[in-house]
Amino acid sequence: MKTWTLSAALRQWGTFLGLLAIVLFFAWRLPETFPTAQNFLNISQQISMLAVVAFTMTIVMVMNDFDLSVGSTASLAGIVAAALFAAGQPVWVGVSAALAVGLLGGAFNGFLVAYIGILPFIATLGTLTMFSGAAFMVSDGKTIFGRDIPAEFAGFARFGIPLDAIGLDGAKLPLMTIAAVIVLLVVWLLLEQTTFGRRLYAIGGNRVAAELAGINTRRLRLIAFGLTGLGAAVAGLMYASRVASANPTQGAGLMLDAIAAVFLGMTMGREGEPRVLATLVGVLILGILDNGLTQMNVDSYVREVLIGAIVVSAVAISAVGQRRT
């Protein structure tokens, strides 16, 4: 039965309303510092790395898979680029090598999952450890920083497009933000507007049925995991550029936040399916909470408890709502 009801609408848009509520709350408590163009630009830069990982994580989660290894892929990619810089290679060599590492690492996950038939949880837990160990091996366990990192690489995270023209004197739209928006557009086009993406949703809907109806599920899963790995590598490079250094653990925090962001977004799907624009809402919720709570001087441990509780309750409300309908 197709009837529009308030409760159904609330369930689907509840997470988005939650985001608005969070924004209004901080605007009320922090009228001086929160609702300013400069702060929003800061937030967009702060969340850009998480956003890239979460957007590309959505690609595998569309198929009901997920990838635990993105954090260590990001670290490894940063380390590989930095090690090549330290060895005197030009920026483009380091960056391409790092992206290749991400793509191949992701494809290896896909190979384990799709062709060998290991559960994604186990396969990517294993590669998480492998990639993390590899990052330590390449870097000898040390942080690569200082003169080893070329200025033009580190500069990427510092530059932005001046916004004087639209009346925001002195403000700049960070290149990091632009990079995240580009990734968002690419993933959105891929998932929503191409045959490739539609097939991924079909696999997520019923993998056995998809296989029997002539979809090459193995190859598609391999490619999807490869793209997730590539996204993780992009985020790893952005991170390394931002802190102008690379250490073998710096991507570690990205994985759980990225999965949380996709789950938050999934509460907005009609059938609980991931959509990349919904993932963006999830990323914004996490990023804005972090920014606002920090400005309110909330203790960082308390912050973690709060953010975790918000994720759990959003998903719980959606689960209860879905059971009702």
């Binding site: 045959t195 539609r198 949703y201 019923n206 979809i215």
Partner: peptide
């Protein structure tokens, strides 16, 4: 149910997904 359909998805994708190749790269 278990081998044929994506129950949560619409009639259109369920009918056409083996034939998506007919539409080229873009939907």
């Amino acid at each position: 149910r278990s081998q044929g359909l994506m129950l949560g998805m619409g009639v259109r994708p369920n009918t056409l997904f083996p034939h998506l190749g007919d539409y080229g790269f873009l939907a």
